[in-house]
Computed example of a mutant assay.
Amino acid sequence: MRTRAVVLRGISNERPYGETRPAGVEELELGAPREGEVLVRVAAASLCHSDLSVVNGDRVRPLPMALGHEAVGVVEETGRGVGRVSPGDHVALVFVPSCGFCHDCAAGRPALCAAAAAANGSGGLLHGPSLLTDSAGRTVHHQLGVSAFSEYAVVAQESVVPIPADVPFAVASMFGCAVLTGAGAVINTAGLRPGESAVVYGLGGVGLSAVLGARAAGAYPVIAVDPVPEKRALALRLGATHAYAPEDAATAVADLTGGGAGSAVEAVGSPRVMADCLAAVARGGKVVSVGLPAPGRVLEVPAQAFAGEGKSLLGSYMGDAVPRRDIPRFLDLWRAGLFPVEEMHTGTLPLTGINHAMEELASGRAIRQVLDTSGLLGV
């Protein structure tokens, strides 16, 4: 079948997103779902900084690539052996299609699935190579097993999580990456407990989701840090108790917590900010890093912070989430009014608006923009 999709054919390392505009909408051929695969009509795809990191070369991926990894849609067709979903089901798409059998899957850490990492790194799918080709018959790679900036996507059945049909598509689209990663970093990785203090550095979609997770976990105070005043104001509306610019954060965190926070979430992708987080936590405190720095960046911190002060620096990929467990429970928190992610929605655009959306994201003005990929949102 044919599908219109956003294809990246070269990187633009200009800062901010520049005039080269390497991403464009093309018509591709999409193969039918194989055994264990699902055809999804993509309803809404959310734009994440990880997408921009592929465009600017911070995350090296095989090109050309059909972009998009955070989305929801409706199942159209299933391949042989698919028993998890049926045509008509609403599903969230997950960018780590865990195999269920490797060491990390068996240990309850499906976000670190080795088979998924290999498939995602190759630009293929968990059950086989890419199903996308361009008008010249050349292979186009999948982004993280999803490629959701498209009218249709074929994904592994391990990449879909059924969701209630009454959840608005634009809301649900943020749960497959931003909410899983940010809230998961607080709830799963840090194991934040009621009454513990937390500070979040970086207030994009992931950082704001960490604020939501800290609030839902009963943290106090919840301190938000970002250079953009509008993002700090939004963090306060979402449940942060205090918000500061980076230059004021160190003193404020120390004063509010009596010397240091219990946990800090780094959602910037900056070694300097990781070091700031390590300095901001108390003895025995935890730093959870969810930002993705460019390759080659090096972290230098005082070595005595670990054995000498009992601090921990924890990496968190996809929020250490178990998507089939966490997406439904996080949607329940949305339904209860504790995860008002619609506050992060800063615009809805058609597929052809991809470059404008990238510019808005790179500028820091946008938090979560949603692409109406197949007309189901009416844009």
Score class of each variant (00 low, 15 high):
P87S: 10
H103Q: 14
E77Q: 15
V85E: 05
P87Y: 10
G79N: 08
V55R: 00
C102V: 12
H90P: 06
G68D: 05
D89P: 08
R80N: 13
E77Y: 04
A106D: 07
A71M: 01
P62R: 01
P64D: 05
V74C: 04
G73V: 14
V91F: 07
A92C: 13
V82Q: 02
R80K: 14
R59G: 02
G68T: 04
V75E: 02
P62H: 00
V60T: 14
V85H: 05
R84P: 07
M65P: 04
V60E: 13
L93C: 04
G81L: 11
G100W: 08
V96L: 02
T78K: 05
V96Y: 01
A92G: 15
V85M: 04
V60S: 10
C105L: 14
C102P: 12
T78R: 11
V54C: 07
C105E: 10
E76Y: 01
V85R: 03
V75Y: 01
V85P: 06
C105F: 12
V55P: 06
S86C: 06
V74G: 03
E70D: 09
G83T: 15
D104L: 11
G79A: 11
A106W: 03
G57H: 04
M65R: 13
P64T: 12
E76T: 11
A71C: 04
V85I: 10
G88N: 09
S86N: 11
